[in-house]
Write a protein that binds this DNA or RNA. Structure first.
Lengths: 212, 212
DNA sequence: GGGAATATTCCC
DNA sequence: GGGAATATTCCC
């Protein structure tokens, strides 16, 4: 089978279909050295989102299409969708890989869940629906607001690091407080000690003089 | 162009060439819940290594081949290698992506670097050689010992976490030592203090009795 | 050559 | 549905 995306680079539009692209498909990694307000080097819409939007938009509606209200999309024939549609846009033909990406971007699976067994429509029971608040028919401008999840391990590591840094901070404060407290306590004790010693010594001297 | 690896899954052998595979090509993620000595679920050789080994082994030698000694491999025609050979094994046809993967696995680029400009052979000056101690012609068994680099950020995070944990450990020890030290110091001071007060008080009492 | 992001795979 | 690995891309 011909693989139309073979030489595709990020930033070029999909080569498999017509090109009246209404959404930004380029992707640029945010320059690590620039501030986040730099207008030229911002990361743009991930290709996954623009590809998926176009894919649903242009798909044979008997395989996959928008819902009637346009607020979700349905894959009616997972088999055909995987083998015939996905490879037009992605470097694979696995439905589960597509679903994994949807999951990364926060899409949720919708279920019809009929109450009665009799209500199960054999025609539509195998349909798979996906929903994302910002993934709507005729509203590609919303796509920009969809954020990909950062990896959980990174998240965890960051939290771990932050927790440990806080602990180090608190411990250093404690050490400083203990040093100050110890110094003051010893200073106070020494003061009292010397005062009482002096007082007793004076008394001894006075009495010693009287004894003489 | 036909894309032979389209439906390939990890664990299946490359479908583009003959199949007298002498090396393990399956890949299984290490089960996180099992001990590292579990023989059935170990991660095997990454596909990148087995694919690259076969690729060099089977390549048209005018495009890429092993060195004469078999201890490195040379890409003689980067252009053709990228467009014709890479996509037989990988989901792309970019030489830089291939090089990036080599880099992940610890391969080094070799240069001929002739001393004299005259020594530059226009035939071979554009050759690109790669070397890895464990990537040798006729020794596929060495491939298993090649380890992919873990991501630098993870590495960094791990080191950061370890450093911070050590710091927390040291600070907690310091706090304990300070507590013990302070207690002993105050105890010692109190002891001296009481001894001298007692001694002086006794002397005062003795003198007071004499005065009476 | 390598950092860091997204993409794809595999597993639980 | 999501964790974690490898794969691919893009950038410095």
């Amino acid at each position: 089978m011909v693989h139309p995306t073979k030489k595709q680079k990020r930033g070029s539009s999909s080569s498999s279909s017509s090109s009246s692209s209404s959404i930004e498909t380029s992707y640029t990694v945010k320059a690590s050295s620039s501030s986040s307000s730099c207008p030229t080097k911002q990361h743009q819409l991930p290709l996954f989102l623009s590809k998926t939007y176009h894919m649903i938009d242009r798909c044979d509606p008997t395989i996959s299409t928008w819902s009637i209200a346009g607020d979700n999309f349905v894959v009616k024939d997972v088999e055909k969708f995987a083998s015939e549609v996905l490879p037009l846009y992605f470097k694979h033909s696995n439905f589960s890989s597509f679903a994994r990406q949807l999951n990364f971007y926060g899409f949720r699976k919708l279920r019809s869940d009929p109450i009665l067994t009799n209500d199960i429509d054999p025609q539509t029971s195998c349909y798979v629906r996906f929903y994302h608040e910002k993934f709507q028919k005729d509203h590609p401008e919303l796509l920009q607001t969809i954020k990909r999840a950062t990896k959980a391990s990174d998240q965890q590591s960051k939290e771990d690091v932050d927790t440990l840094k806080l602990e180090v901070y608190k411990l250093k404060n404690l050490v400083t407080e203990m040093e100050v407290g110890m110094e003051r306590k010893i200073s106070d004790m020494t003061y009292d000690y010397n005062r009482r010693i002096t007082s007793l010594t004076t008394e001894c001297d006075r009495l010693a003089n009287l004894v003489k």
